[in-house]
């Protein structure tokens, strides 16, 4: 019997090694796998590369992971915000590496990794400092930059509902990076507030098929709007 349900956050994160590349889903609070991030913090790892849209906000989640010194490098599109003080401090101290990627290129590079694409030409970033040193090409009169996939050892994402095969439903804009990160990582770990019996999810509505998911752990939602 295939059963990707696991009993605890600590169990699903137990084999993540120092130096791993980890994708973390979420855009703002929507889709942020906060319990998995907090579990990662408890592991006291070092040398991590984190792929996320941001670099941590306020005094929680990814910001605390950055503060703890666990993170060697961040690949993201928007690190600097009014409440990104932990990243700002590490960056100015030269204690963290930043690879800044336009948000659409970030998404497409993640998608490309999951889809087996070797590299792709994109117009986003052409002529800017973020394309410095990269190959360019003019195709049918339009200028493009060559971008490579971003792969990860692990992806930590949040979904709304899962069955034991790992089929996932999301909720509203919390979907964001979840489906593409699930495809791009060797091991995808999902937290969901709701578990479903196999066969109870409408196959027409499944957004991430279970083939892209390895482990599912149930954690209650703190969002009062998120009910089954």
């Amino acid at each position: 019997m295939i059963n990707k349900f696991r009993d605890s956050v600590d169990e699903v994160l137990a084999d993540i090694p120092d130096g791993a590349t980890i994708m973390i889903g979420g855009f703002g609070l929507a889709g942020q796998p906060i319990d998995l991030i907090n579990g990662l913090l408890r592991r006291n790892l070092t040398g991590l590369t984190i792929v996320n849209n941001n670099a941590g906000n306020t005094d929680e989640g990814l910001a605390l992971l950055v503060k703890s010194g666990a993170v060697r490098k961040v690949i993201c599109s928007f690190p600097r915000q009014v409440d990104s003080w932990h990243f700002d401090k590490k960056y100015h101290a030269g204690e963290i590496e930043l690879e800044l990627v336009p948000q659409g290129n970030l998404a497409e590079r993640i998608r490309a990794a999951g889809a087996g694409i070797g590299a792709f030409y994109t117009p986003s970033g052409y002529g800017t400092t973020l394309a410095d040193g990269k190959e360019t090409r003019t195709i049918e009169g339009r200028d493009y930059v060559l971008e490579y996939p971003i792969r990860a050892d692990f992806a930590l994402i949040k979904a709304h509902k899962a069955d034991r095969w790992g089929n996932l439903l999301y909720r509203k804009t919390s979907r964001n990076f979840g489906p593409i990160m699930a495809m791009a990582a060797t091991t995808t770990i999902v937290q969901v507030p709701f578990l479903a019996e196999l066969g109870d999810l409408d196959p027409e509505n499944i957004v991430t098929p279970g083939i892209f998911v390895d482990r599912v752990v149930q954690v209650d939602s703190t969002n009062p709007k998120e009910h089954s």
């Binding site: 928007f78 690190p79 600097r80 990243f87 960056y91 100015h92 990627v101 336009p102 290129n105 800017t128």
Partner: peptide, 12 residues
């Protein structure tokens, strides 16, 4: 600290 978000993607 540089931060770009979706600005370049929207522009093109």
């Amino acid at each position: 600290i540089p931060a770009v978000g979706g600005a370049m993607d929207l522009a093109v």
